[in-house]
Design a protein around this nucleic acid. Structure first.
Ligand SMILES: [Mn+2]
Ligand SMILES: [Mn+2]
Ligand SMILES: [Mn+2]
Ligand SMILES: [Mn+2]
Lengths: 218, 218
DNA sequence: ATAAATATTTAGATTAGTCTAAAAAATGAT
DNA sequence: ATCATTTTTTAGACTAATCTAAATATTTAT
């Protein structure tokens, strides 16, 4: 059994791993969890003793197979709970994360099994992120940042990079919701802003926004 | 904010209070929480500093108004989650307690508000226990132990005293479920067992069983 | 290749929650 | 009223998780 803290470390390493291919650095983990590097070193050593991470002093850390499976299961729980909150309890997509951070630590295999069924075996959470299956397998869909699209390219809005409440609320105000068709009408060289068409109307979005929207090209 | 451990102490004192009218003893709390009396003394002192219990050395402890409200809210959460598990996720009534022990500590007023609505504002949990309202008020229904009924008395089965998994499963096997009409056909003086009628059939139950079933007389 | 900057680890301290063993207070029995 | 028993508190220790400050290793820049 793993403590809540241990679970949070495993999850942080799991998420950092998808971006980095080398060992995950102590500092990166500390930043992600808002702790100090010295605390990370201590915890890494403990997780290493428990065989869920492999660790060589000064050379970063990586999940073992068993560690990856545990981490994926926590992510699975987190995302299933987010679906529950949005689909069943009328939360909006910017309100669910903090509650899911707590719910993901509830220990009960039956609970998650039944919740999954109750929700109709969803494959994605409210932010478009994939829900790992029971074995920890995560199927990622083909997607790219809106900022990488060329003029006249189009596709479907399938996910966000930044999922802060502020950004999600901004998207709500602009009626930019998951599943919508987006077409690039114009790209501005000067500030890299773009004019897009969505909901059959045109709007200008900044480079920063375009860098946080994932598109599945079509 | 209160830690999980502090919440468990408050809840234990709350539950012990309904039975006892004097101050709750250190030993009683220790037994309920499966800890040592010395640990209880330490925690009581902390809760006293936080003004949620009143405490005089050697003379037991009692909840303050604020403490009672916090404790009732934890019980509210526990029981709402039990309803969720049974009504929505097909748990049986003997499987819910341990999961609810975890879920009751999730912090999110909106979550509980929405869950309450989603469940249709239930007033009782799967074991027949009342769900405190938002202000911590608990309406108890008129009920008595089956063992106190006389021959030919009858009533409705509305709750259990012992809610261990074993006992609940026993009731399931005997088709003794909440809401059923029960009539006392015969009482045996020798061993205090009784013959009852339920589901239009007769069965004998021991004194111990009769002492754990609550009946609303009719 | 060396020095400076950065990253990581170690050493030592702190807090929450628990425990055991011993001391002190309250309760019960003669 | 005194003594024995039970209950409660205190003293001191331990573990998990964290921190700060100092030491050490690695990386980067000259
Ligand atoms: Mn989330
Ligand atoms: Mn999400
Ligand atoms: Mn329960
Ligand atoms: Mn219950």
């Amino acid at each position: 059994m793993f403590s809540q803290s241990e679970e949070n470390y495993l999850k942080a390493i799991f998420h950092l791993t998808t971006a980095e291919k080398n060992g995950i650095s102590t500092n990166a983990i500390a930043e992600k969890l808002a702790t100090k590097p010295s605390s990370v070193t201590d915890m890494i050593r403990k997780l290493s003793d428990k065989k869920v991470v492999s660790y060589k002093k000064y050379y970063g850390v990586a999940l073992t197979n068993s560690g990856r499976k545990i981490a994926a299961y926590i992510v699975r729980k987190h995302r299933l709970w987010e679906v529950f909150l949005v689909d069943k309890l009328d939360f909006s997509w910017d309100e669910v994360h903090d509650v899911a951070e707590q719910l993901e630590h509830i220990q009960s295999p039956k609970l998650i099994q039944q919740l999954d069924q109750f929700l109709g075996y969803p494959t994605q959470d409210p932010h478009g992120d994939p829900i790992p299956d029971k074995d920890g397998n995560l199927k990622t869909i083909e997607k790219c940042l809106l900022s990488t699209l060329a003029k006249n390219d189009s596709g479907i809005f399938v996910g966000v990079d930044d999922s802060s409440s502020d950004f999600l609320q901004f998207l709500d105000r602009r009626r930019i919701t998951l599943g919508k068709q987006i077409k690039v009408i114009e790209k501005e060289d000067f500030d890299e802003s773009m004019l897009i068409e969505i909901n059959s109307q045109k709007m200008t979005i900044s480079k920063k926004i375009a860098n946080n929207l994932y598109i599945q090209k079509s």
